[in-house]
Nucleic acid binder design. Structure first.
Lengths: 112, 112
DNA sequence: CTAATATACATAAATTTCTTATGCATAAGA
DNA sequence: TCTTATGCATAAGAAATTTATGTATATTAG
């Protein structure tokens, strides 16, 4: 455990980025995907994820579609047109942020 | 402005890292240094910085030394022994975080 | 000479975001 | 049958940050 925390503000952008890549995903799937991609480093808690999804939907960035698989509910989310645009902006911001953090934390690193 | 925000949890580590590099710094100097190193991308607000410095001091990670320069007050902070140890840990954590974020946001990047 | 900007500290209120703790429900595996 | 996994949700609390102030001195521009 030790770490495994996200950092304020990064969750929404991660969600948008994943949806942009995968087309559509449901909540639980997002938590597993993030865990997998980060090799267990990042764990999105449900208490953070679901409110975030609801907020992105309320902002008009996501659309929902309910499905029943194996008698269990799934809510598939996908980007709206507006969501696609916002994803570009927020991703650029996050990339800038990451680059800045690197510059501060380890100027020896360089991104290829 | 648009961006210019830090991200939760990264501020303390940035402060520790800078003090580790520079030996000693005062608050205002830290805000300017971060702005410079990040090319204006990251702006530490005073409302975030000063409470953070006080907290790190209370935790025993920083020592303070007051100085008067040009008839103006400066509070120079430097790492304690314990602060030096903690810096190593927190920096490693932040580096892991940055790597994980990169993996998520842009797997094409690689760190050399 | 005076107003704005820069330097330098500080704190309080409000906001945002996240963790922790719950709750409900079905499926699969030990 | 008990635990773990899947799948959603919300409420309470904690933590970090922004925004808004406040005080004070020094410098620069008009």
């Amino acid at each position: 455990m030790g770490n495994s925390k996200l950092y304020k503000g990064s969750l929404n952008t991660i969600i948008l980025k994943l949806l942009d890549e995968e087309g559509k995903m449901y909540g639980y799937e997002i938590t597993q995907k993030v865990k997998e991609l980060s090799k267990g480093e990042l764990n999105i808690t449900e208490g953070a994820l679901y409110p975030a999804l609801h907020k992105l939907e309320a902002e008009g960035l996501l659309d929902v579609e309910v499905a029943k698989v194996d008698n269990r509910l799934r809510k598939y989310y996908k980007l709206t047109k507006q969501g696609e645009k916002e994803t570009v902006n927020r991703l650029a911001e996050l990339e800038d942020f990451i680059r800045s953090m690197q510059q501060l934390v380890n100027p020896d690193w360089s991104i290829q």
